[in-house]
Design a protein around this nucleic acid. Sequence first.
DNA 1: GATCATACTTCAATTTTTCTGTAATTTGAT
DNA 2: ATCAAATTACAGAAAAATTGAAGTATGATC
Lengths: 289, 289
Amino acid sequence: MIKIDMLRCFSTVAQFGSLMEASTRLGRTPSALSMSLKQLEGHLGARLFETERKNKLTPLGQEVFRIAQSQLRQFDDTVTSIENAANAPQGLIKIASIPSATGLALPQAISTMMEQHPHLKVELRDMDSAMVAEAILHGEADIGIASGSQSLNGVDCVTLFEDAFGLLCGAEHPLAKVTSPPTLDDIFSYAFMSNNLCSQLDLDAVRSASEGAHIVVHNTHSLIAMTRTNNWVTILPKSVARALPDELVFRPIDGITQRRTVSLLLSQRARFPNLLETFSNLLVQADWT
Amino acid sequence: MIKIDMLRCFSTVAQFGSLMEASTRLGRTPSALSMSLKQLEGHLGARLFETERKNKLTPLGQEVFRIAQSQLRQFDDTVTSIENAANAPQGLIKIASIPSATGLALPQAISTMMEQHPHLKVELRDMDSAMVAEAILHGEADIGIASGSQSLNGVDCVTLFEDAFGLLCGAEHPLAKVTSPPTLDDIFSYAFMSNNLCSQLDLDAVRSASEGAHIVVHNTHSLIAMTRTNNWVTILPKSVARALPDELVFRPIDGITQRRTVSLLLSQRARFPNLLETFSNLLVQADWT
DNA sequence: GATCATACTTCAATTTTTCTGTAATTTGAT
DNA sequence: ATCAAATTACAGAAAAATTGAAGTATGATC
């Protein structure tokens, strides 16, 4: 029978490439770990490590390592969630939000909320819009912030704010120096990085440029690092491009009127409906610009 | 320390509302379960059941039940995946696919593949397009079928087929009886059901009708059941509407030229690249219409 | 509201599993 | 080839889970 502890043991040993290192990390003796590993390999009927020194994984070992890592993260999350739920008899709000909103009015709203309700516990998770919707449907979150306006069963949806798309480029990039706002054609004549957010723009020109892009960057920090080199440019919603370092410039784009709407999703089956209502009012009234 | 077994115990007892029933189901004695529950409640510092008879959960209990259920499903999945990986030293292909492709050439291709490679193991999962992409990126799948053409790091993408959108309605519905193909306006003058797939149509008219729709149906079987009443109609890609019962009709829509492209996604870091290539050739050459 | 059958809890003994510490063996690097 | 470090084996110890029997609460029925 495979147990969480076996996976944790394997995972740690795989990570450090040594029983000893892993054993101090886990607070067990090397022999205990060795036996756990032996048991796991026995159960699977295959080796997980190439050599007896545990510093090289077999292909199967790599596969199991990947699976185990993700299971462990997930399990630890579960435990935290359960413990949060238990330690919050006075109120708990589970928030799921897209990363860009986490950088806006959300922290202020949470802080105000916690002042007013000293016993309130808050659980906050970043994810993309589709996962926010899923999380609320599955009861993993009570309230969510996502882009687009979704109509889901048992979920209320209000628009929070709208967001214009624009160009992100380095301050030394040619597009930063043109006086009038650049057009899409101007932009696509330079090396263009695609990202998850610009695919929300329903324009064929953007879609084909995204597909033709040689680089797709999935996370904002990388995007900023890449842009800083002045070699690439990208298109983003404005709220994502806040608090930029000096070497970066965000500019409107000539001919783009489409905006991204960001909405508040409210579960109708939350455990603390009153708190949720207070909180949602705070969010709706907050300054999101 | 919370363990999987504790969650399984709690979950089963919560499900059956009785220690005895759960105990036979799990093959343990009632007292063992009782002690496990006591330990869990002790760890959380709160009650999970309203009374000592285990047939009523506290609000916290309900929350923990939901979390535990999903964790258990996830954990069992993990175990299966690991065991699959270990039991397939000769070859394993992990497929992630949108449900509509599962009903098309995929079964045939898998069957051909397994004839040619008697030791081959296959893992097949249904999910929506976004999750297919995620699964491949995370190494949970080697090959995927998804709508749209995504460009992802370390993933090859080829178009498999294209799919026209059309109207799905009951055979007795007025729209089934008009001679010429109905327009969008015709359709939206009747009660319209929204679904996840029609949101892939980039048309404002469809978007606003979806948002205004009083019903959103997330799964094809329900969609068919609803349509059969002749009270509602919906818009779908053609391949989803195959093998319809007689009482249903699928019709082209006047003025809709946009098609849904369905693509094959291939991980470049699969464990058995040769098998994957053979399989992907099969899929590309298959008859998808 | 008293009674009864059923279901849950507790307790101590037992079994199973897991962990430790030392000694012996293996391994990879020099 | 040799050595130092790391891993395994083994047996005893500790911890945890399980059991069965006895006690106690519950709610259904009259």
